[in-house]
């Protein structure tokens, strides 16, 4: 009795789980299959579930219309430089806000938090005019620099830095370590999970960002992946095979980046759940 009940409840759970898997993997799988089909076949009824033989051709035409290597490099360069610099800046700022005492500290922090509430649309046009007057249109720095100080990342780093006991810092000072040394060799290793979380977050947001790069970049050689993919959607003609393949390719680095930092990231999520 008990076992059959157990089995039936297990069947129920598993079928629910399988449905969940299909729901979440299905679109992704369809994208993968789509990238191997010619444009016309993607909309076939019934939908094709097995990969076709058009992958090489899609890649060739995608490369012809975009120059995929340069686009990938643009995206990667921008995202990595941005992630590295912005993480460093927010870690430093967070550390200062959490552990140092200076005049106007709370006021500054309040102002930074307030900027979280300004919608990005408001700053779009003034920022764009600024880039134009710097003559920075169509350059990497126009994309990297304006968002280098991220209030959200600073806030997140500050909260994590607060959890670091003051006694560690004091002990290192007594031992004669300089402030920079304390920051780089003592503090940063301790907040590694937070660093991982912040950098995944920053990498993803920069990698996927469309509006700002779209507005500041003009020539095809400078496009980032989202802008380039968006340019594939024509007025009346869309090669869906190319779009599917481009989208597939663009998800790979995010997955890699996430897998690479996943261990730290998940321990970071759990980090706050248990109090000693």
């Amino acid at each position: 009795m008990i076992t059959s009940k157990k089995i039936s409840s297990k069947i129920g759970i598993y079928s629910l789980l399988i449905a969940g898997v299909i729901l979440s993997i299905g679109p992704f799988y369809w994208m993968l299959v789509g990238s191997t089909l010619p444009s016309g076949e993607i909309f076939h009824i019934p939908p094709k579930l097995l990969p076709g033989d058009h992958l090489a051709k899609n890649f060739q035409s995608l490369n012809e219309s975009l120059g995929i290597a340069k686009i990938f490099w643009n995206s990667l360069f921008i995202a990595l430089v941005y992630t590295f610099t912005c993480t460093l800046i927010s870690a430093m700022a967070g550390y200062a806000f959490a552990k140092f005492h200076f005049k106007g500290k709370n006021l500054f922090f309040f102002i930074i938090l307030c900027t979280l509430m300004i919608p990005s649309q408001v700053t779009l046009i003034p920022l764009f005019e600024m880039m134009v007057s710097f003559n920075w249109l169509n350059t990497y720095q126009a994309i990297i620099l304006p968002s280098l100080a991220s209030p959200f990342a600073i806030y997140l780093m500050r909260q994590n830095m607060k959890a670091v006991p003051d006694s560690i810092i004091e002990a290192s000072r007594v031992d004669g370590a300089g402030e920079l040394r304390i920051f780089f060799t003592i503090i940063l290793p301790v907040v590694r999970p937070a660093l991982a979380a912040v950098s995944i977050f920053l990498f993803m947001s920069q990698w996927n960002s469309l509006i700002w790069p779209l507005i500041t970049l003009n020539s095809k050689e400078m496009f980032t992946l989202p802008v380039a993919l968006s340019s594939l959607i024509g007025m009346a003609r869309i090669d869906y095979g190319q779009v599917m393949l481009g989208t597939t390719l663009s998800t790979i680095p995010i997955m890699l980046f996430f897998l690479l930092l996943q261990k730290h990231f998940i321990s970071g999520i759990l980090g706050g759940s248990v109090k000693e």
Partner: peptide, 25 residues
Amino acid sequence: VKVEDFNSGDLYEKLTVGLAARGSG
């Protein structure tokens, strides 16, 4: 002549921002 190619929605977005920024860019 340098022809730059965007999708139409993106083009309007860029154009609106440029016009709102008093024609820059």
